[in-house]
């Protein structure tokens, strides 16, 4: 039933935004941003439950916590960067949105660097010098 709440919220805010857009584009944008944040907050709890469950599963299956942490960090970065970029894009600032996405990508790549380092180290050790 929560999906109805979310969709209802989205529909109402869309109608309001369409009404208000002619007179006050500024408030229309604020309404858009607030709706986005509300829905995001609403989903936060659900995503948290999913992550807790994932963590529990991984722990019982003997996956090293450091792997799981890396994975969760990646998802977090992706979600937050995406969300911010979309709000900015709604406001019509395409270039800023692109920069936010770039930052997200770079931060994800930074997470990959230690893994790449270990793999390369192993490969170098495998091959005779």
């Amino acid at each position: 039933m929560e999906i109805i709440q979310v969709v209802g919220l989205g529909l109402i805010s869309t109608i309001l935004i369409l009404i208000i857009k002619e007179q006050k584009p500024m408030f229309a944008f604020l309404l858009t941003a607030c709706t986005g944040i509300l829905i995001f907050m609403f989903l936060m709890g659900r995503i948290g439950a999913v992550f807790i469950e994932l963590e529990r599963m991984a722990e019982s299956a003997g996956v090293k916590m450091i792997y799981l942490k890396t994975i969760l960090k990646i998802i977090g970065i992706a979600y937050i960067a995406e969300f911010g970029a979309q709000i900015v894009r709604d406001a019509g600032q395409e270039s800023v949105a692109t920069k936010i996405e770039l930052a997200g990508k770079v931060l994800i790549m930074v997470l990959a660097i230690p893994i790449i380092g270990i793999i390369i180290e192993t490969v170098l050790k495998l091959l005779p010098a």
Binding site: I47, Y67, I71, I74, A78, Y79, E82, E101, I108, A112
Partner: peptide, 18 residues
Amino acid sequence: LLPSRSMERYVKLVMSLL
């Protein structure tokens, strides 16, 4: 779970490395 396509390549790279 990934929110959008734009991040997909990067996330996939890190996941495959893992």
